[in-house]
Amino acid sequence: MAAAAAAGAGPEMVRGQVFDVGPRYTNLSYIGEGAYGMVCSAYDNVNKVRVAIKKISPFEHQTYCQRTLREIKILLRFRHENIIGINDIIRAPTIEQMKDVYIVQDLMETDLYKLLKTQHLSNDHICYFLYQILRGLKYIHSANVLHRDLKPSNLLLNTTCDLKICDFGLARVADPDHDHTGFLTEYVATRWYRAPEIMLNSKGYTKSIDIWSVGCILAEMLSNRPIFPGKHYLDQLNHILGILGSPSQEDLNCIINLKARNYLLSLPHKNKVPWNRLFPNADSKALDLLDKMLTFNPHKRIEVEQALAHPYLEQYYDPSDEPIAEAPFKFDMELDDLPKEKLKELIFEETARFQPGYRS
Rank of each mutant, 00 (worst) to 15 (best):
L157P: 09
G357S: 11
L155H: 03
E60H: 12
E305Q: 03
S223D: 08
P196D: 09
P247A: 00
G34K: 01
A5H: 05
A352C: 07
A35I: 07
T110Q: 03
P247S: 11
N27D: 12
G215C: 05
L343M: 12
N123T: 00
L244A: 04
K340E: 09
R77H: 02
N281E: 08
P196Q: 10
N87H: 09
L75D: 11
L252C: 08
L343Y: 08
P274H: 09
D162E: 15
I126H: 08
H141A: 07
Q105Y: 15
R353H: 09
N224D: 05
S223V: 09
V145S: 05
D124Y: 13
V145P: 11
I95Q: 12
I133V: 01
H80L: 15
L137K: 04
V18L: 13
G37W: 11
Q97T: 12
L244C: 04
L343E: 07
D337L: 10
T190H: 02
R301V: 02
Y25H: 07
Y139L: 07
D179P: 09
D288M: 02
Q119R: 04
V273W: 02
G136Y: 04
L121W: 02
H141P: 12
D100R: 11
I347G: 12
I243T: 06
I72Q: 13
I72F: 12
E96P: 06
H180T: 05
L69W: 04
R277S: 15
L278Y: 09
I90L: 08
M108T: 07
S202V: 13
T63H: 14
V104Y: 04
A35L: 06
A327N: 02
T190V: 05
W192N: 12
K231C: 05
H61P: 13
A7L: 06
D318E: 14
E250I: 02
M333H: 05
I217W: 05
Y205I: 04
A52Y: 03
E60M: 14
M13A: 10
C166Y: 10
S246Q: 01
E12R: 10
L28A: 02
A92S: 14
A52G: 12
S153H: 01
A286N: 01
L244M: 14
R353L: 13
A352L: 06
I243M: 03
I83M: 00
R77C: 04
I53S: 13
V214T: 07
P152I: 02
Q62M: 13
A327D: 14
M98L: 13
E349R: 11
L241C: 00
I209A: 08
F329A: 04
I95G: 03
D288A: 10
L170K: 07
P274C: 08
I240R: 01
V101P: 06
E349K: 13
T351R: 03
T26D: 09
P196C: 04
A260L: 08
F129V: 03
D149S: 03
A7Y: 13
Q355R: 02
L258G: 08
V304G: 15
L237I: 09
I240K: 05
A260F: 01
T181I: 11
S202P: 12
L308A: 08
K231V: 02
T206W: 10
A3L: 13
Y113C: 00
L76T: 02
M293V: 00
M221C: 10
Q105P: 00
N144G: 05
L116E: 07
M221E: 05
Q62L: 15
T63V: 09
I53A: 10
N144F: 06
E341R: 09
D124F: 04
A174C: 04
L346V: 11
F129K: 07
P319C: 02
D167N: 15
S284D: 03
N47S: 13
I95K: 13
M38H: 09
A282S: 14
D288Q: 06
H269I: 09
L346T: 05
D291E: 12
T94E: 04
K344A: 05
V273G: 00
T181W: 11
P226H: 14
A143P: 07
A35D: 12
G85N: 06
R50L: 14
N297D: 08
S29K: 04
E186D: 12
P328N: 02
L76V: 00
K117H: 04
T160M: 03
G22S: 00
D175C: 06
N47Q: 14
L294E: 11
F19T: 06
K270N: 15
H310W: 08
P176G: 11
V14A: 10
T68W: 10
S360K: 12
F168V: 00
A171K: 02
E33S: 01
T94L: 03
Q66N: 05
S248P: 12
